[in-house]
Design a binder for these strands. Structure first.
Lengths: 344, 344
DNA sequence: GTGAAAGCGCTAACAA
DNA sequence: TTGTTAGCGCTTTCAC
């Protein structure tokens, strides 16, 4: 829109973007003073600061963060890698991360692997290229190339969702223990024919870990621990359909331990449509503590996982580390809570 | 980790990051050829390309995207601004955007305004600083400063969710028409005492637009169009609680037109718990077409909005534009579908 | 408290 | 097809 750019020598600048130098000139200071006025206000005289801020306002200066990052090799960008955006649990973690990080002036670069570890590797590469200040990724499992890349990176890495020995920082919960917890609950309730139903356990391996805990408890009681693995993603629909399948394959089933609340609620609602009584004919349990579970009748027995809290805590720990605190290889267990509803 | 950097003159490089120059040297070509081999493979000889790629592999080169962006003033970063991450509809739009954009090598910079237009302005400023290739924002409403900033920006701007004359590109649906559609349906069903229930309509102004359409239809029939506005965000819980409130304030209510499916499903489940028959005692309608609505009994009458599709289409249009196609100020109506369930 | 000089790692422009 | 040169806009280093 401005056509007053005097073509002196060969110029590469094409945009009419206002630069810090122009601000500095307008404020009657050097570029570096202008820079300091904006980034380290306390290292500059009251007077200079005021002039610079006034010039910024007047010229409509928007800092070029790309240039700043290149010069300082710091970006205030945080890479966040999740396996799925359909599954609400990851979104809630992102939510927690986001509100905490944004308040500290960090931006989120979002990546979705679709449960593909090779895709994760590609994303990590790309994000490293952005000089991200830190990286948050869901889970402790990575492919070899990704592992190597992460191990040699000199910025904080936060692995969330599951508790364990990770590359660097870790915030999560013990999924094996959660599986045990629910299995014990079902045993306590007197159920003996218990089926575990999960969806794509190779991808959603945390659900697989819960199954491990579940099986452990059942086997300790000398009880079989049959598994039904669905080939769809977890959803109400899949849960509804699984009910028929489970009852066909395991006619004596007394209780179903679902890998998540979507499946469980889908099955519970389907059971009602079919005139099955819950828990009389069939008991149903889930995992996550989604609101939906508390609004169906009977209320869904589930395990509440603090997802937003997980995101917030992860963000806080990252911020601590990024502010220079030496917090190495810390693990944080956010725990879980058994929520007993009427469905078991 | 490498300590073999010969301190020749005063160096600023501290990290052991492999640079393109090193790759070029290892491949026996100039830096610019190495650059071309990676970014414009067809503009380079077979031989050079092979040598460069081999060197990249061998040295573990990760391109510095920050430097590249500064030099080219193109970033392949797309800013995405939404008002909320709790509301699943925005997440679904993000999902659609993401799968399409990531496939084309773009990354998403995510921002959340929490329904605050001033916050939107701040985010836009920050994102401009990253030389984003394009910006996607939810809605057509912005504050003055933001509007000015957007108007002077020379990259594509995509406003999604609602249809209308925007700054640049637009993909959405007509919320007033959607409100009319549902209201007409309720009228057709014979209901006359119809209450519209929404949550924070100043923030979720699209729900307010649907109310406008709703009221229009009712008033054309000479019918009152009472509104109950909740002071919480839309949720199952809020929907459940609203039921009591509505029946207290409007005892003759025959049907409730909820601003979204969360509220509607919450009310429907609450009605069942209270022994109210739906639609016998009270008819219930929602908006969005969330899966939940199809799994409750009776199925929820709602309006299906194609959210992921909206994201995908928005992404495709952006990509068209970014690839040089001149597509100015196009509007895309993604439409909506009335889904008649048993709840009305 | 302030500034001059140099350079972050890459690519656009121009030339060969 | 390949290379040379000169930046992109900012911040670091070091000196005043």
């Amino acid at each position: 829109m401005s056509k007053d750019s005097p073509a002196t020598v060969k110029q590469r600048r094409n945009s009419d973007q206002v630069t810090l130098s122009q601000v500095a000139q307008a404020a009657g200071v050097s570029p570096i003073t202008a820079s300091r006025a904006l980034n380290h206000p306390d290292k500059v005289s009251e007077n200079a600061r005021r002039n610079v801020l006034e010039a910024v306002e007047r010229l409509g200066y928007v800092p070029n963060l790309v240039a700043g990052s290149l010069a300082s090799s710091r970006s205030r960008l945080i890479a966040v890698i999740v396996p799925s955006l359909i599954n609400t649990v990851f979104v809630e973690v992102i939510k927690g991360l986001q509100e905490t990080l944004e308040a500290e002036g960090y931006q989120i670069l979002l990546g979705n692997t679709d449960y593909d570890l090779d895709r994760e590797y590609q994303l990590v590469r790309t994000f490293f290229g952005w000089s991200c200040s830190a990286l948050v990724t869901a889970g402790l499992r990575h492919n070899q190339a990704c592992h190597t890349l992460l191990a040699n990176w000199d910025h904080p890495i936060m692995e969330v969702m599951e508790l364990g020995k990770g590359m660097d920082l870790n915030v999560g919960l013990d999924h094996v223990a959660a599986g045990r917890c629910m299995a014990s609950h079902l045993i306590d309730r007197g159920y003996r024919h218990i089926v575990y139903v999960g969806a794509r356990l190779t991808q959603d391996y945390r659900a697989g870990m819960r199954y491990e805990g579940h099986r452990e408890v059942l086997q300790a009681q000398g009880i079989e621990a049959p598994l039904v693995e669905l080939d769809t993603l977890g959803s109400l629909q899949a849960g509804a359909e699984s009910l028929t399948q489970v009852l066909a394959q395991h006619p004596h089933t007394q209780a179903i331990h679902f890998a998540n609340d979507d499946l469980a609620a889908g099955a519970l609602l389907a059971a009602q449509r079919q005139g099955l009584s819950v828990p009389g004919d069939i008991a149903i349990a889930g995992f996550n503590g989604l609101p939906l579970g508390q609004h169906v009748t009977p209320q869904l027995t589930t395990i509440l996982s603090p997802r937003e809290e997980m995101g917030r805590l992860a963000a806080k720990e990252l911020i601590r580390r990024l502010s220079g605190k030496n917090v190495y290889r810390r693990q944080h267990d956010v725990g879980f809570t058994l929520q007993t509803g009427g469905s078991t």
